[in-house]
Amino acid sequence: MAARIAVVVFPGTNCEHDVAAAVERAGAAASLTWHRDRDLGQADAVVLPGGFAHGDYLRPGALARFSPVMEAVAGFAAGGGPVVGICNGFQILTEAGLLPGALVKNRGLRFVCAPSRVRVDSERSAVTAGVAVGTVLSIPVNHFSGSYVCDARTLAALRDGDQVVLRYLENPNGSVDDIAGVANAAGNVVGLMPHPERAADALLGSTDGLVLLAALLAQAAGVRAA
């Protein structure tokens, strides 16, 4: 039976159907989960998609963190379940304290919407397990607040713990250490600014996003079997 992916929808989320279509193309069953739900159902993995949850008011992710569903997401993550935040979803995970650091306005106050090349720098994550370190993927970014920041001690811990999952080859936003994606210490919670669901069909110019989504589905299947 196909892995079940819960795709969380906040008011203002706008990438949920793209994510659902992409994971279904990769062989999973997707179900949209409203932010007021306190239950993730039988999900084997959770994706927080991109968009503007709660209008991005205050700060991106600052209000979404208090949505009822986030308690279930935190519980699922604490149990080792794969949780992936894409773009706005990444911002929500940092605001919720499920990932270290924060995402601030891009260098030069420039909105960036472009293909980006990222390198896989760790296999210890729910979206890169089994993907060789050094693999370069072309996946689009689309954000205003995508510049990753953290203090020096956190950065050292991320490097030592092999938690920097993806780095930009050409840094589009001023992220510290060219960071495009990070994982928690256990590797099951991951946030990334590039949108793998937008690189899931040759018509979109790249299918490299499927590499990350396939890895996620494999992790989800592992959860199912456990």
Binding site: V104, K105, N106, R107, L109, S147, V149, D151, G174
Partner: peptide
Amino acid sequence: RLRPGIADPEGATI
């Protein structure tokens, strides 16, 4: 306000 050491592109632009 942003903590010292955090880049402030709005302030810099102003």
